[in-house]
């Protein structure tokens, strides 16, 4: 079985995001970019499935400009076998991304497509679900545990009421939640090996997809500044303050 894992290049989780002064987007110049953490978890799980002997090949894919190859190389250094770079200068929205991924699925015929449950830049949480619909295959989202047997995946999902375990027939779309695993570090010798692993660049028109933009973002605003705290002298003052605010 083959597993296809998507890797999105996003502003690093620990970087304090700043809105550009003209409100046209988020500052990315000189900002640390990393693999979307949920995608990294998806890749880790795919690698573990392969290491258990339940898959033969792990392929990583990313959509974007040339710089996404940095994240693909990281994926290869973590242990993926091959990488696919779908080249486009624009930032596809979930539906376009799902259409592109469907084309990759038709070419690669994976048993599992593993995505992060959402990307931390736009928090859309749509691409995996849309891909499953377009592909007409089952989906198991928000996975916190994955077990494979007899062509089925048993997936434990984190839902509001607790944990829910569902079984889906493969091929299927899986998306990872935070507690699925802890991704490994990249070993330096593996980076050297990763340089020799294949990375195919695919033009968007080669897939017969138009770079459709389904919506446009007109403005970005940073969240309003929080008002500073106030230090009170006594418990009595605190009670008064709370009463004044109608909180008591």
């Amino acid at each position: 079985m083959k597993i296809l894992v998507t890797l999105k290049r996003v502003v690093d989780y620990n970087v304090r995001v700043r809105v550009k002064s003209d409100g046209s987007g988020v500052e990315t110049d000189g900002v640390k970019m990393s693999i979307n953490p949920f995608d990294e978890i998806a890749l880790e799980e795919a690698l573990r499935i392969k290491e258990r002997g339940d898959a033969e090949e792990v392929v990583v894919a990313s959509i974007g400009a040339a710089d996404v190859q940095q994240q693909l190389r990281t994926g290869l250094a973590m242990g993926a076998d091959r990488a696919l770079h779908v080249e486009t200068e624009s930032a596809p929205q979930p539906l376009t991304a799902a259409r592109i991924l469907l084309k990759l699925v038709e070419r690669e015929e994976p048993g599992i497509v593993f995505l992060g449950k959402q990307a931390i830049d736009d928090d859309c949480n749509q691409t995996g679900q849309m891909l499953a619909a377009l592909w007409d295959r089952p989906q198991a989202t928000f996975a916190s545990k994955v077990e494979l047997s007899d062509g089925k995946a048993s997936v434990t999902r984190e839902v509001d009421a607790g944990l829910e375990t569902i079984q889906v027939d493969l091929p299927a779309v899986l998306t990872s939640d935070l507690r699925l695993n802890e991704p490994r570090f990249v070993k330096l010798p593996e980076i050297m090996k990763a340089k020799r692993k294949p990375l195919d660049i695919i033009a968007l028109d080669e897939l017969g997809i138009e770079d459709a933009v389904d919506h446009q973002i007109s403005d970005f605003q940073p969240p309003p500044k929080r008002a500073g705290g106030k230090i009170l002298e006594s418990a009595g003052e605190l009670v008064d303050e709370l009463k004044n605010k109608g909180l008591l």
């Binding site: 989780y13 990393s34 570090f185 990249v186 330096l188 010798p189 980076i191």
Partner: peptide
């Protein structure tokens, strides 16, 4: 042997 960080959290 050696490892290298790939993100701020690493």
């Amino acid at each position: 042997d050696g490892i290298i960080s790939q993100s701020e959290s690493q």
